[in-house]
């Protein structure tokens, strides 16, 4: 895509895309742009969960793709720190598509057509290269050459023919690459059938909505202070269901590290059953982790005032089996 939103390398957002939009669809917070996904993970330690399957193979759920679903905590943290903002996706699509001018629509369709032609030409070129290689492998390069040569004979000059002829004299089986430029790319694709593009993201054609925080912050559970606290310490946090806790806490990217903590959040005065502490500590130690409970200290919160970060004034305790 030749659009300004396309990025030079994965993981770096252009200045125009920070803060990036988080789509809210029916109380879920989703990222549809793979660049925003990698960016959030690399720069802001936000992993989320990939939830996209292939539409025709929805049972294929081993390797999931975009969209990335964010926990409400993750979405809120990104918004609070000014890295992202929430858009109501349904509303944005409605207004965006209705307000789009005819000129913009045509321009977008043309851009899609152009892109489709480019992709088609590219794939055709690749297919030709493949077949030529296969023919070479069987020692039928001569015929392949002749085929291509005869096709371009009207346009190709004599020197090119000479080079082709020279090439045929040598043992062409082990030839690494054709010395003459392959005629196909220089040849305008005559009967290439255009590929039809289904864009995976809506921005563009839709204008990215303005960044005014029209939507309120994502609603989060009472464990949010603990989440923000751990995130502020540089930990990566993923959902903790598989260990029976609120969050699984990693000291680095979960692809590179084992998790250190099974974290459970609680209110300052919330009653905690000692059996839960014992169970969590025992489970955590069994999988070489610590069980961590924590929450916002209301005493300190009142003292420091309301303008502080959510992660401030959080007290946490790490629990491990003593081995006695």
């Amino acid at each position: 895509m030749g659009n300004s939103t396309l990025l030079t390398s994965a993981g770096t957002l252009p200045q125009t895309l920070t803060p990036f939009p988080i789509s809210r669809i029916a109380t879920r917070y989703l990222l549809f742009d793979v660049h925003a996904v990698t960016y959030a993970r690399r720069e802001h330690n936000i992993c989320g969960v990939l939830i996209g399957t292939i539409p025709h193979l929805s049972q294929q759920n081993v390797f999931l793709g975009i969209p990335l679903e964010l926990m409400p905590e993750e979405a809120r943290l990104l918004v609070e720190h000014g890295h992202a903002y929430i858009i109501d996706e349904v509303e944005a699509h409605k207004t965006g598509l209705l307000d789009m001018s005819r000129k913009d629509q045509l321009a977008f369709l043309q851009a899609m057509d152009k892109q489709g032609m480019e992709i088609a030409a590219e794939s055709k070129k690749k297919a030709e290269e493949r077949s030529q290689k296969a023919l070479q492998g069987r020692g039928m390069a001569r015929r392949a050459r002749e085929n291509t040569a005869s096709r371009v004979s009207e346009t190709a000059d004599s020197s090119a023919k000479q080079r082709l002829a020279d090439g045929d004299d040598e043992c062409s089986v082990f030839e690494a690459e054709p010395r003459s430029p392959s005629p196909a790319p220089s040849h305008p694709p005559l009967a290439v059938e255009r590929h039809f593009i289904t864009p995976t993201i809506s921005y563009p054609p839709l204008q990215t909505p303005n960044t005014t925080p029209t939507l309120s912050l994502p609603e989060v559970s009472k464990t949010y202070p603990l989440f923000a606290f751990l995130h502020s310490k540089g930990y990566f946090i993923t959902p903790g269901l598989r260990f029976g806790c609120h969050y699984t806490v990693y000291p680095g990217d979960p692809l590179r590290f084992h998790s250190h903590f099974l974290a459970t959040g609680a209110d300052w005065d919330e009653e905690i059953d000692l059996l839960d502490i014992v169970g969590g500590g025992r489970l955590g130690t069994g999988v070489k982790k610590s069980y961590l409970i924590g929450g916002a200290d209301t005493r300190r919160e009142n003292a420091s005032g309301a303008g502080s970060n959510a992660g401030d004034g959080v007290r946490a305790f790490s629990i491990e089996w003593a081995g006695l």
């Binding site: 000291p251 250190h260 500590g281 130690t285 305790f317 629990i319 089996w321 006695l324």
Partner: peptide
């Protein structure tokens, strides 16, 4: 602090509780 928890049958279990975020042991 070592948290000693005793049940009605006088079984006692011991857990180490650290103040703050302390990484787990490598056992």
């Amino acid at each position: 602090v070592v948290l000693a928890t005793v049940d009605g049958d006088s079984t006692v279990v011991y857990y180490i509780v650290h103040d703050g975020v302390v990484k787990p042991r490598q056992n």
